[in-house]
Amino acid sequence: MQRVNMIMAESPGLITICLLGYLLSAECTVFLDHENANKILNRPKRYNSGKLEEFVQGNLERECMEEKCSFEEAREVFENTERTTEFWKQYVDGDQCESNPCLNGGSCKDDINSYECWCPFGFEGKNCELDVTCNIKNGRCEQFCKNSADNKVVCSCTEGYRLAENQKSCEPAVPFPCGRVSVSQTSKLTRAETVFPDVDYVNSTEAETILDNITQSTQSFNDFTRVVGGEDAKPGQFPWQVVLNGKVDAFCGGSIVNEKWIVTAAHCVETGVKITVVAGEHNIEETEHTEQKRNVIRIIPHHNYNAAINKYNHDIALLELDEPLVLNSYVTPICIADKEYTNIFLKFGSGYVSGWGRVFHKGRSALVLQYLRVPLVDRATCLRSTKFTIYNNMFCAGFHEGGRDSCQGDSGGPHVTEVEGTSFLTGIISWGEECAMKGKYGIYTKVSRYVNWIKEKTKLT
């Protein structure tokens, strides 16, 4: 034993070699072989497995989906700052455009905790909710729209109204504003409101030439003092309507412009014939205590009207009353817009006519005020429907199939267009061939041609 100890002390290297040989010859039971080890760690190889990531292109799944990435790591994937920024906006807080917040056709661009709407022409605001041009839906104005110097929408209202708090709607500024039905039992019968379409306001006024200088022999019209197929109006439903009495009662109609003036057809009036105007009328054979009678003290036909040349060209006249009318729910003026808007309103496509005229061709006159909704007829169809001249200051309205029309005794009465609950004068009943005849239409004086003249002559002093 002493000898062994001496050998170990003198030859430590020998001992180490012996131990190493023993270990190498022993069977290893701690580690699995290569094949079995792979069965336990069965993990798919990654895209760049075996390579240094710093030297390969980034992978979106590896960089940002398996674990949260930084902007720089995302930049490695896209290799483009702009594309990385677009991805980053949604990656950080989701897609803010998912709810489609942009209105009126706006395009949404996502941002971090926010979004941006790219608005089409005519709109602005956070969600493109603000109209900035009158060309689109009248700028959301209830009545009139004008573009300011910086191309912003400025709404306005006709006389007797003021802008509401929203700067879009119009509200009454006087007790009985024009064009409004205020009798409670008839307010439910107000005709369907007309909503502004998209309009090209630059070209809204037709490029028409008034044929002022045409000389033409007097034409022989049949029954051209021209509501057939209409309905009984309720008291106060058309408070701007008046009836004219002269040699015979209810020979023509008219509309209240203001307390002192009536507008009617020029062919209705004769110099030297006494005319009485009755406002607030409903049943011409009954006294309903809503009527107001006034005498006409002055007749002003349009300066281009000449019955000797043509009885229905420039067929418009103004009547001055001896005493002002007292405005109330049964006696209310009709609204008159400017030339541009009167023309736009007419193009809405349908209007209402009213009167006490004959209820059928050569038949009896109506006792109760009649009204009828009539569609506008395109000019080409209008011209083809008659052998008589249709001037540019006239328009056609009615039904091709016949059966409904204005008729004798309705002449001078109103053709009105309702705009968001307020009625505007767009025409004056003038003439036609018979009444409600198939293929024939009622012919009306186009008020847009005469609004400046009306307003100039009827100013209240």
Rank of each mutant, 00 (worst) to 15 (best):
A380F: 10
N104P: 03
F224R: 10
E61G: 03
D200P: 12
S350Y: 10
G357E: 14
M437Y: 13
E86S: 09
I214N: 09
I136M: 14
P235K: 09
P12H: 11
R180L: 06
G125K: 03
V183M: 10
G230F: 15
P414D: 04
T81Q: 13
E116G: 12
N313W: 08
I214V: 13
S184H: 12
F424L: 01
F71Q: 05
I275H: 05
T276V: 09
G357R: 15
D200W: 11
L103W: 05
V416I: 09
E53Y: 00
H314K: 02
K260R: 12
V195N: 13
S70R: 04
V353A: 06
N59K: 03
A279K: 00
L211C: 10
P101M: 05
T215W: 05
H415C: 02
T458Q: 03
G21I: 13
Q2A: 13
R364L: 08
D111S: 12
S365E: 15
S385G: 12
T276F: 05
L346Q: 08
S169G: 09
G412S: 09
V243I: 12
L19Q: 02
T186N: 14
S430G: 10
V416E: 02
K440V: 05
T342H: 03
L52Y: 06
C108W: 02
F399C: 06
L244D: 01
G236I: 06
N166C: 03
V331P: 00
S114D: 14
H289W: 11
S406R: 11
M394W: 06
E116T: 13
E320Q: 06
N104C: 02
Q216A: 15
A308V: 10
G355M: 05
L52T: 05
N113G: 09
K109F: 08
I429Y: 15
P375E: 05
L163E: 03
E418D: 15
V242Y: 00
V30A: 09
V181A: 15
L376G: 03
E340Y: 13
Y352C: 06
C252R: 00
L23F: 14
V419G: 01
N42K: 14
D249I: 06
L244Y: 04
N306S: 05
V30G: 11
W453E: 00
Q219L: 07
E320L: 04
R162T: 12
A317L: 03
R384E: 11
R226T: 15
F238L: 07
K440P: 07
R83W: 05
G125H: 03
M65C: 05
L130V: 13
C141H: 00
I284A: 08
V199D: 14
G254W: 00
L19R: 03
K152P: 09
L319R: 00
T445K: 01
N245T: 09
I297M: 08
E54C: 00
A366C: 06
E10Q: 09
D232C: 10
L346A: 04
K152M: 13
I40S: 02
R43Q: 02
P44A: 14
C252E: 00
V368M: 12
V181I: 11
N42T: 13
H282D: 04
I297N: 06
N135C: 05
F360E: 15
Q185H: 14
C268G: 00
Q219S: 05
N245M: 07
T332F: 04
T84M: 04
T81C: 05
N127P: 03
E171S: 07
C28R: 03
I136P: 11
T461Q: 10
K188F: 13
E53A: 00
E193S: 13
G280Q: 02
E231F: 08
G442D: 04
F176I: 10
P12W: 07
A307T: 07
V92H: 09
G13A: 10
C435E: 04
N80T: 12
E420A: 13
E27N: 07
G106Q: 03
F345I: 08
V243L: 09
D378I: 03
T190V: 15
V228G: 06
V227S: 12
D322C: 03
